[in-house]
Amino acid sequence: MRIAKTTNTVDGDDVGRVTGQAGPVTRTPRTRSARLPSHLVAWAFLAPVVLYLAVFYAYPLGRNVDLSFRDYTLRSFIDGTAKFSGFDNYVEVIHSPTFVPALTNTAVFTFVSIAFQFSIGLALAVFFFKKFPLAATLRALFLVPWLLPLLVSASVWAWMLNSESGIVNSGLEHLGMHQINWLTSPQWALVSVLIANIWIGIPFNLVLMYSGLQSIPGEVYEAASLDGASKWQVFWRITFPLLRPVSAITILLGLVYTLKVFDIIWIMTRGGPGNSSVTFAIWSYRLGFGGGSPDLSPAAAVANLLILVAFAFGLVYIRMQRRLVEL
């Protein structure tokens, strides 16, 4: 027998999870804490990863925060004698002429990427979930773009979108259209990096949503088909709601990863021409090591703004989880 999982247990579970997070007062006493106190067991399972977190993340995170609140030059970065400067770096960054374009580009880049990646990934997951010959192989082939070093995949896109010798423009000209300066005109540069990034992100969404579909028990569909629901209805009324937890984590991770996309944009346009495809991640690198003079402190400040954005999305995610349960 396959382990039956009904909507009830999923919901019941999430309720427990949320109340658990809300605080110890509302927590229901558990029966399985017979031998060891359950929180000790839980922390035993968590211990390795927490240690790992402390060793590998604490120092870089601390360093990044420290960088952003001091006035570091390359020299003081090395000998560690930078003066505390409060929020100066943040003020400088926010008043920079790059701030507004970077903010809008980051927002557009992130939301458009996610919207397309997620919907295409979900549609493909549903498509490949049908049983047909070669389905598993073709699905595996969708992951191949991820095997390429980003240097190569971004270069290939830049190659295809090249104004003069790119295949895309050559195709457009065959169709009687004009050459588009994909990477070199302010209007198209962001579109170009978006296309490449959506392409890169499709496999991620496909795989996660496919796993999500796999974890929906077949009985649910059987019941629905007995009720005579159409395929479309089944999808929107049953599949999609059941996919919500997986969708939420996929979108959240997608947001986090898209916010920090760097290589694709850097290789294709370097954020240019001018600031037309600059995002926070690109800007931070430009300030740090990608420009003419290393401005480590403002670079760290920009990076920390991104961390704050991720923080906000994390809060939204937790909110959403709570609402899902109330529904």
Binding site: R17, Y57, P60, L61, L252, L259, A303, G314
Partner: peptide, 25 residues
């Protein structure tokens, strides 16, 4: 499944930790 006290914070830190620029890491 075991939902320890403070577990939410741990997953939250992981979410944030991913945003540290690779170069700083």
């Amino acid at each position: 499944k075991l939902r320890p006290r403070g577990g939410g914070t741990v997953s939250f830190i992981f979410l944030i930790a991913q945003m540290i620029p690779t170069i700083i890491m």
